[in-house]
Design a protein around this nucleic acid. Structure first.
Lengths: 335, 335
DNA sequence: GAGGTCCGGGCAATCGATTGCGCCGGTAGA
DNA sequence: TCTACCGGCGCAATCGATTGCCCGGACCTC
């Protein structure tokens, strides 16, 4: 816990010189002998510059806040890895946060930033937070990058190429010869859910296939939601032979529910899902999925924020590289 | 981004007075009129005290570091919730960290704390980090609380009641009439794995059941490890009729592998596992598990650290409340 | 010999909040 | 009238690191 002053004393110089030597200030004129003395002293004392002091001086905390609705979500976990990586590269830390919906969460983001705990925020929006509420949670002068949703003008954003992902999943089923293809979508107003549904609809239209209203269930992202959607699908007059499920967790729930209902996957029903986590691979049958670059999503979002803190304007990006890729496993088969 | 000085100016007083009013210093003699002026000014300017400045002054960052080997693990996720809760109560933040094994990770923890980014660290040890390596990663003067492992004298610790958990799981199988009960354990030197194995062995002994060496496979915590262990179990001369699996992720892998091998669960093989996450519930068959209080684990660990920062000595605790509880689902049945 | 230049470093302000101590004016008690 | 005391508030140091500016001496040049 040595301070710069301690190092300076040990080296017999002033703080100024010690600082200039240790920060590698080349413009400073300091003799090589002195430089060595300072560096040796720093090493001997195990000097580590105080982040607190630097934060105060530079008006920068060197941390980004990561605010997510649910940390138990595997999707979040994969993304987190990317955020961490990017933050590390920039020498920054990641602070985990929670923000309640308004009114209790009102202004919290602003506080977080105003208090200087973090320099900016990565925000994954809760499903139930609409645009107005979101705008309220955001302050005016808080650097925010939204993950998987958008709010043009108020924040930057980075989203997956959800349309392409859903198209790929749907096309896979079409190519297998399925014609009655259902869709377990996310909640209605969620950005991501909307885009994935769009990809599904587009592909169906292009293939000249019709979509019966009862084939589309707007459930949610979780396993329970996927399971709950199954009876609705099965009771449809013309039962689909295949399903596109918008999220891997919901797919897991759906496949289980299908099994319980005596519907075999893939013999009686093909299931393809979007997002690829370890759960999809571990399942029996292993789930055919479309892999979207979650890690890259986190990395890019963090990058947009960090660059913005460096002066670049906030941006709205789609993570299209690496492109969505179909991971063929056991849950789909030709009709 | 108003500072205390701004508030003071607006209220027509000095910084000192503004500070005393806003911090609610009762010993300070300030007239009620002045107090009101200051408070109004603070509100009008949306004053939020700078965390950076306070951190410097108090030599406290107000954050704890949470260092885990793998954030994609559902076990981690549940625990994280508890850590967050406890930190919030204390007005602290949670900083996510990563620490590589020595030599590259050597001294990193010390740096983290010495630099003042965090006041202390919660550390969930990597499976492959032995005691010596762990001691090296730790500095000398870093407040550390280990989660699910121990290193007496060097750090505090909080662990689950793994023995009781494994006993409960094993006893459940015994009561169902099983006599040949196998165990998919974690890696050999891992604290948690050792304790769970102990619970298994104790219960088997108490029930007067023998344990054939080939019934015990020291695999790992992940789905792949569980799947890989299955062939070994199935090829045993006297095949077990039931399995205790030490971790829910491994159990998922094992059950899938059993299914592929044509072994039905629970008809041909009962499987009970320790730890209860959403995956266990979503599976088909839904897994019978022993629920251990993961959230409470995180909360307690964070509490030990925070209390230590407040002056209390570090402690070594076992989270025994709520007690391990058997969650009966579909993966076990009477012999 | 006077003035200029370069070298090697130190002084002190700054970032924002907290806090021990001291100052000033008024009132009460002696 | 003088002293003591108290209410109300400001001064300035402190927490560490950074950085613009200045200073003293050596050396050089005209």
């Amino acid at each position: 816990m040595a301070t710069l002053q301690d190092v300076a004393d040990a080296a017999g110089v002033s703080r100024s010189v010690a600082s200039r030597v240790l920060t590698g200030d080349t413009r400073a004129r300091v003799s090589e002998a002195t430089r060595t003395r300072v560096r040796d002293a720093a090493e001997a004392l195990q000097y580590v510059p105080s982040h607190r002091a630097r934060a105060l001086r530079f008006r920068r905390s060197g941390a980004v806040g990561l605010i997510v609705p649910d940390v138990t979500n595997a999707v979040f976990a994969d993304m987190l890895g990317g955020v961490q990586d990017r933050a590390r590269e920039a020498g920054m830390s990641v602070l985990l946060g929670q923000v309640d919906p308004p009114p209790s969460g009102h202004g919290r983001l602003r506080e977080l930033v105003a208090a200087g705990r973090v320099d900016g925020v990565l925000l994954q929006r809760r499903e139930d937070l609409d645009d107005a509420a979101l705008a309220q949670v955001l302050g005016d002068d808080v650097p925010v990058v939204l993950i998987n949703s958008r709010l043009p003008g108020r924040a930057g954003s980075v989203v997956l190429d959800d349309v392409a992902g859903a198209r790929l999943a749907t096309r896979h089923l079409v190519e297998l010869g399925h014609e009655r293809i259902g869709h377990l979508a996310g909640v209605p107003h969620h950005d991501t859910a909307v885009r994935r549904h769009q990809g599904y609809l587009e592909t169906m239209a292009e293939a000249g296939l019709t979509v019966a209203p009862e084939w589309v269930v707007r459930a949610g992202w979780e396993a329970a939601a996927g399971a709950a959607a199954v009876p609705l699908i099965l009771s449809a007059p013309r039962r689909p032979t295949a399903l596109v499920v918008s999220s891997v967790n919901a797919a897991v729930g759906a496949v289980s529910a299908l099994g319980r209902a005596g519907v075999r996957v893939p013999e009686d029903m093909s299931v393809v899902t979007v997002l690829d986590t370890w759960v999809a691979q571990a399942w029996n049958p292993a789930l055919t999925t479309v892999r979207l670059p979650l890690r890259e999503l986190g990395r890019t979002a963090c990058g947009v924020l960090i660059e913005h803190l460096g002066g670049t304007p906030l941006r709205d990006l789609v993570v299209a590289d690496p492109a969505p890729r179909l991971v063929l496993r056991e849950s789909t088969r030709a009709l």
